[in-house]
Amino acid sequence: VVEAIKDLVQDCNFDCNDDGIQLQAMDNSHVALVSMKLSTGAFSPFRCDRNIALGINLNSLMKVLRAAGNDDILTLKAEDQPDSLNLVFESPGQDRMSEYDIKLMDIDQEHLGIPETEYAATISLPSAEFQRICRDLSALSESVSIEASKDGVKFSCSGDIGNGSVTLRPHTNVEDESKSTSIALTEPVNLTFSLKYLVNFCKASSLSGSVQLCLSNEVPLLVEFKMGAGYLRFYLAPKIGD
């Protein structure tokens, strides 16, 4: 998760309570927002005696996380009114244990209320497919138009060297649900977004085999990666003509 969001947001409050750990942060330009939840089910055990916000610089956290092995067990600990976060990595065979403390920061973060939205279009597709489309089209243009209709979803762009588009039609993969593409539509939508941000969101592709795009005309796009016990959501403000 940290790897997926660290290029978008730098200083974040990890809000801890009985439900687990949540994070909401906007990028500096106020165009994209990250919303993450790791429920208690993601941890074993999980204990939180008092609601607490852990202000963490993600670059610092990455420096420490890089010291962990892929299969290590990670324990995160913070005291009441902490000035640091304690991280312990234990190898699966328990023959190696490393321990780090990183300094916490006071982060005065703007919190946005995200209204419950009935989206006009909800598209589910393999996350690798979405990543490929964003990467391919970003070579041609800064922006992509996403047009969803009952026939399919069309990603199109135009730039100095020419233009391009990718159209996906609904498709069911019976062996692997995450490789399916589905489109639920109440009305057609057509919106334009910055590809730079979408390419950035796709760094979360390794967290989930499929991704959900939720769109309504003239509202921010929701890109959701569902995780075993939580989610990573990105909101992106659209580009709108005058």
Binding site: V31, P220, A237, I240, D242
Partner: peptide
């Protein structure tokens, strides 16, 4: 071309 909007256009601070 179309202009990039801010999230503040759509979401309120709480």
């Amino acid at each position: 071309g179309p202009k990039q909007r801010s999230l503040f256009t759509f979401f309120q601070k709480v």
